[in-house]
Design a protein around this nucleic acid. Structure first.
Length: 845
DNA sequence: TTGCCTAAACGAAAT
DNA sequence: GTTTAGGCAA
């Protein structure tokens, strides 16, 4: 997949672009005694255009709403919970609620804080509010939890030992740091790994534990706990020394800030009068606490105006406990289920009418989710009618399943559904491989959302580390990363020498680099360090000049210039271009792409500096680069799919151990969460829903037998039309019907139940090496190798033979070069489109 | 210190 | 299956 980062940023940026006219002074709390009441800063320019007839405006915003939606838009009070079933129009309700507040002049834009989970959702909300009320929407904070917190922390960082140019460590950075620490403390002897440690630290931070509070809870007789405490302490100190926050810190540190400095909190409590939170079911404890802090009534005496506001902000939360799928990230479903207890007097509005899907799809969703006990009963319904039946398909293998999907997509396309209205969902990113292989061969345009992200690529992290080293010289992790990238002959030994020099002389690591000649190292190494150091200084100076310049866009364009400078003068780009590794060429292109991203950033954010740029790239999310206008089928995980909708949806890999994932079995509430995930997937579909699975799935290099997911049986049989049911899958060319069944044979004859493959029982899903029968019977229909037919020339009329589809005749050839596509009519397999370059075909004479 | 090789480990979801 | 850790020669 090619990079879409430019588009991502372009959009994400527009959220921050209109500098808030009513924004708070840049560091209002630097002087605690001179707290400025926020109201002073609001220019009248942001006042909504006064509508001559506010009531008319109101009714315009209420148009087309059902009674419950209307209540949700109009209710005014301290706390409102909108329980919004899937597809019940909650975004519409949220945006209209905001628009109404603005239009009725109940709130200034700057008094509104709306929190969403992704930048994309934030951008969409902003657009929709803007469409309703125009310019009056400017100045609202519509952002994710994380970007809102970064914004606050950058302003207030100096209160607790950080500076505003702090770095944000993503999970990769976090693990790299932990890896070092675990090694230094030899904590691996106690079973600590970067991944389990980061999970544990993350969990603690989401519970608002810090090193001190955690140390009070541990059993001091348990050496393992003591070692972990050491790791945690060292990690925390390393972050502070590097002037860095990890993802979880962004939320928890903001809460700590508010708790430690009530006068700081008071500013935000006074400022935000209306707080709206989307996807409330996915908030974790830290996020919940943040909301609590923000909606608290400001402490008396902190407001210098006579017209002291004593009430806390009004809170509107929207959510659906049936769609809570982020428990693994610390989301606490109780935040929403106990909302009424948390906020006494809260109004609850239930939205059950669905405007998205057909009744068949909703009935399936309702049936599935009703198997989760311990939930408030809620039934989605629609007025649009039953619609098509759900289509089921069982393939012999993942490739077979993928082929079915590709064929169905072509059928849908021929029937008039655009590729961009079609999506394929899967549980794990690893499942994309089979889909991609088939889609490429079928010449189906597709896009993978999320997965390995642009910003996680090593070369991009390298390039960004250069920028970070300039923006935040305290960040030793970034410095270490670039120290020997490209290869300069600066190895671990030299690095240690620099670090101990810094420590012994009480200077920073960065300063030690400047004084490298005092280290007594070899001349080659010394000059390498000095050169790098000088380059970083040069970049820093260039940025300072730009900031000092009076041209409005100077600092933004400087980011790109500085990145170019760093990449060129460091020799990084050259080293990639001159490398023998053919992949390095693509890496160099990616670096160029990143430079292009900075240019795009400059265009969208004339005032943005290097720190703003780095913040943006740290917080882009998997779902953010969705661009439905590209005419491609969208592939994504079920998690990424939340909040999206498509005309046709393919839910793939509906198998035991995949959905529910085998890892979920050990976790309390695991199967229920997996069921919600399935539910989320089902409810993304507007008109057509396809459920597919495979009988064998190649994973981890082995082929394993797959069982139909238990959730399949929860869907009433009459809703599904099985093209090939799990009981009727025949091996290719074989006649024997092989039945596979879910763990327990259902008493009903939902699908014909025969016997399990010999030797395979429910608990034993892996073929032993000896039993080769399944492999031969269901050998992958597609070889994993990508072939290259090179310059195979085909013209209409040619006869060809395909490895899977057999003989056929070429009807037409379209496309250019490597993308030439043959339209072939096969004798038995029907019409297919094939990418000539890689299709397993031979020309017949 | 780098680069190349083999051996072994490791496989979920993501702001 | 892919990525990473470690060993060894240049």
């Amino acid at each position: 997949m090619r990079i879409t980062a430019t588009a991502v940023l372009g959009r994400a940026m527009s959220e921050a672009a209109p500098r808030l006219a009513g924004d708070m002074a840049s560091s209002p709390s630097s002087n605690a005694d001179a707290v400025q009441p926020v109201i002073v800063g609001w220019p009248t320019a942001t006042v909504p255009e006064s509508s001559s007839d506010e009531r008319a405006g109101g009714s315009r915003l209420l148009e087309g709403l059902n009674p419950q939606q209307r209540i949700a838009v109009e209710y005014r009070g301290q706390a409102l919970l909108i329980v919004a079933g899937a597809g019940s129009g909650k975004t519409s309700v949220l945006t209209r609620r905001v628009a109404l507040l603005l239009e009725q002049r109940e709130a200034w834009p700057s008094q509104i804080l709306a929190i969403t989970f992704t930048n994309k959702a934030a951008a969409e909300m902003r657009e929709r509010v803007q469409a309703l009320v125009g310019q009056a929407a400017q100045g609202m904070w519509i952002s994710t939890f994380h970007s809102a917190c970064v914004r606050i922390l950058r302003r207030e960082a100096e209160h607790f030992g950080f500076t505003k140019n702090f770095t944000i460590y993503d999970s990769g950075d976090q693990r790299a740091l932990l890896k070092r620490i675990i090694k230094e403390l030899e904590a691996d002897a106690y079973g600590f790994t970067p991944s389990n440690t980061s999970a544990k630290i993350s969990k603690l931070k989401n519970e608002l534990s810090d090193v001190e509070s955690y140390s009070r809870t541990i059993n001091t007789n348990d050496p393992q706990e003591l070692v972990f405490l050491q790791v945690f302490r060292k990690y925390t100190r390393a972050l502070a020394d590097a002037n860095a926050f990890d993802f979880d810190d962004l939320i928890s540190q903001t809460v700590f800030l508010f708790r430690a400095f009530p006068h700081v909190a008071a500013q935000y409590q006074q400022r935000f009068r209306h707080i709206l939170v989307d996807e409330y079911q996915d908030t974790n404890h830290a996020q919940y606490s943040l909301i609590r802090e923000l909606t608290r009534a400001p402490e008396a005496g902190t407001d210098q105006l006579a017209t002291t506001r004593t009430e806390g902000a009004s809170l509107t939360v929207v959510g659906d406990s049936d769609q809570s799928i982020y428990a693994f990230r610390g989301a606490d479903i109780r935040n929403i289920t106990e909302f009424e207890r948390d906020f006494p007097g809260a109004k609850v509005v239930l939205l059950e009418q669905n405007y998205r899907s057909t009744q068949n799809i909703l009935s399936a969703a309702n049936a599935v989710i009703s198997n989760n006990f311990d939930r408030k009963d809620k039934k989605l319904w629609t007025a649009v009618g039953d619609g098509e039946k759900i289509v089921g398909f069982t393939g012999y293998s993942g490739h077979d399943e993928a082929q079915f999907i590709a064929d169905e997509i072509e059928k849908l396309r021929n029937a008039g559904t655009a590729y961009s209205d079609i999506a394929v969902f899967y549980r794990t990113n690893a499942q994309t491989r089979a889909l991609e292989e088939i889609f490429i061969r079928a010449a189906l345009p597709y896009r993978i959302m999320g997965g390995t992200k642009f910003y996680e690529r090593a070369e991009i992290k390298d390039a960004l580390a250069y920028l970070v080293s300039v923006a935040n010289p305290a960040d030793i992790m970034a410095l270490r990363r670039i120290l020997n990238t490209p290869k300069r002959g600066i190895g671990p030994a030299t690095e240690t020498a620099l670090a101990s020099f810094a420590e012994n002389n009480g200077v920073t690591f960065r300063e030690a680099m400047r004084r490298a000649d005092a280290l007594g190292l070899g001349p080659k190494v010394t000059s390498a360090i000095l050169q790098l150091s000088a380059l970083l200084d040069e970049a820093q100076a260039a940025l300072d000049d730009a900031a000092a310049a009076d041209r409005p866009t100077a600092s933004a364009t400087a980011v790109g210039d500085v990145l170019s400078l760093l990449m060129t003068k460091s020799g990084y780009l050259d080293s990639l271009r001159n490398s023998r590794d053919p992949q390095d060429e693509a890496r160099a292109e990616n670096v160029d792409e990143l430079i292009a991203v900075t240019k795009e950033f400059a265009k969208n954010n004339p005032d943005g500096g290097i720190v703003d740029f780095l913040t943006e790239v740290s917080l882009v999310a998997a779902a953010d680069d969705l661009d439905d206008a590209t005419g491609s089928v969208s592939l994504m995980t079920l998690h990424t799919a939340k909040g999206l909708e498509y005309d046709a949806v393919f839910l793939t890999g509906i198998e035991e151990d995949l959905l529910p994932h085998r890892m979920s079995a050990n976790e309390p509430g695991g199967p229920a969460e997996e069921r919600r995930l399935f539910y989320v997937g089902i409810t993304r579909a507007r008109k057509r829903l396809y459920l597919s699975l495979a009988m064998t799935r190649a994973q981890y290099g082995e082929t394993a037998v797959a069982m139909p997911s238990r959730y399949l049986q929860e869907i009433p049989a009459e809703l599904i039309e099985w093209r090939q049911s799990p009981g009727n899958v025949n091996g290719r060319g074989g006649t024997q019907s092989r039945a596979l069944n879910a763990r327990r044979a259902p008493s009903s004859d939902r699908w014909s139940v025969r016997s399990l493959p010999e030797g395979a029982s429910a608990g034993d899903t892996r073929f032993s090496g000896g039993s080769s029968k399944p492999e031969t019977a269901w050998a992958n229909r597609i070889t994993a190798k990508v072939r290259d037919n090179g310059d195979l020339e085909l013209v209409p009329g040619d006869r060809i033979s395909h490895a899977d589809f057999g003989p056929g005749r070429v009807n037409a050839v379209t496309g250019e070069g490597a993308k030439r596509i043959a339209h072939v009519q096969f004798e038995s397999a029907g019409a297919k489109k094939l990418l000539i370059k890689i299709a397993p075909i031979e020309k017949l004479d």
